[in-house]
Amino acid sequence: MDNQNSTTRLPRRKVLQWFATVAAVDLTTIPGFAQAPHEATGYGTDPDLTITYSPGDVWDLTLSDAERKAATALADVILPADDLGPAASEVHLIDFIDEWVSAPYPRQKGDRNVVIPGLKWIDEESKTRFQKDFADLTEAQQEAICDDLCAEKPKTPELAKNARFFDRFSSICQGAYYSTPEGWAAIGYVGNTPSGVFNGPPQEVLDQLGLEQTVKD
């Protein structure tokens, strides 16, 4: 591998940390510095594919504490702990969600414009109805709001608008949750394991579906 692009592989956060230690000026006075999320660059067209990445490694996480608190609670309502697997918070889904809405790509920027106002709304709605932030509501109170968002025909235009937020947010959560080993177990994905042979579907599955294995040994 050549090293031409090695600087672009450095996480922006680390570059900034390094810059802060050597710079004699107050970085925050430089125009544009504070606009990190949307000025952030992506991983480029030649990222190192052999290392493990964590949210925040390539671009900064940008959700506020209040947004993270609301998002964590909502993700746990959508994907709670049950007999299929752990809750969203147990697999640190909030970091993935934060990474997603902080990403510099068009699709994720679009989602950011839906998710951030949606999180703000859900806290406001919680305060209006129950005088607390969404995260501090009882399970039944949280579900009352979610049920309104999930209604086939939302009762008000405001609920209809935020039902779209709920759908988008749920989709991001599912994408993240089912990318984890815990999520694989929950949904029933089996694989990513080397094996000396491939026997095809088990006989019980073939029987259930009335199929016959046509490639014989």
């Binding site: 990222p47 697999v91 990474e99 068009p106 990318s179």
Partner: peptide, 13 residues
């Protein structure tokens, strides 16, 4: 879960 954005596609990949 070991890649940015769960490994989903972006304009760079």
């Amino acid at each position: 879960d070991q890649a940015p954005l769960g490994g989903s596609s972006t304009p760079e990949k």
